[in-house]
Amino acid sequence: MHLFCEVNRRPRWYILFLAGLLASCGETESPSPLGDYLVRVDNIRTLSVNEVRTQLKNHPAVSVNPLLIDLLATQGVRVLKLTYRTPNPEGQMIEVSGALILPEAQMPHCL
């Protein structure tokens, strides 16, 4: 609601710009190659700071002082799957992947 009110006070081009940004937060952000290495970017998950704290405190293998978790985990995260190119041991370029975990402050598209 706060965001909506803010938008209503701005020119129409801003609304279109914002709509474009929100559309970019869909399941697949980038269907075509994006660079020499980067092939595509997919949204995996977004966790609020409370969800992060709860999940980290309930980890089955790493028992961490809950107060320490609260102290360190100060913001939510957004998890992206990056698909990129790299050579396999035989030297052939293949597509591989990995997780890019961004702090809340680094995800302006979806705020």
């Binding site: 966790l47 700071v49 992060v52 704290r53 999940q55 980290l56 978790i69 360190l72 985990a73 100060t74 913001q75 939510g76 995260v77 998890v79 799957k81 698909t83 790299t86 396999n88 041991p89 293949i94 597509e95 591989v96 992947s97 990995g98 997780a99 890019l100 975990i101 961004l102 702090p103 402050a105 680094q106």
Partner: peptide, 21 residues
């Protein structure tokens, strides 16, 4: 995730043999 929630950008490769490969 802990690093991300602490303000770092965490880059975590799957390695060859997992994920897309």
């Amino acid at each position: 995730t802990l690093l991300g929630a602490a303000g770092y950008i965490a880059v975590v490769p799957d390695y060859i043999g997992y994920g897309a490969s």
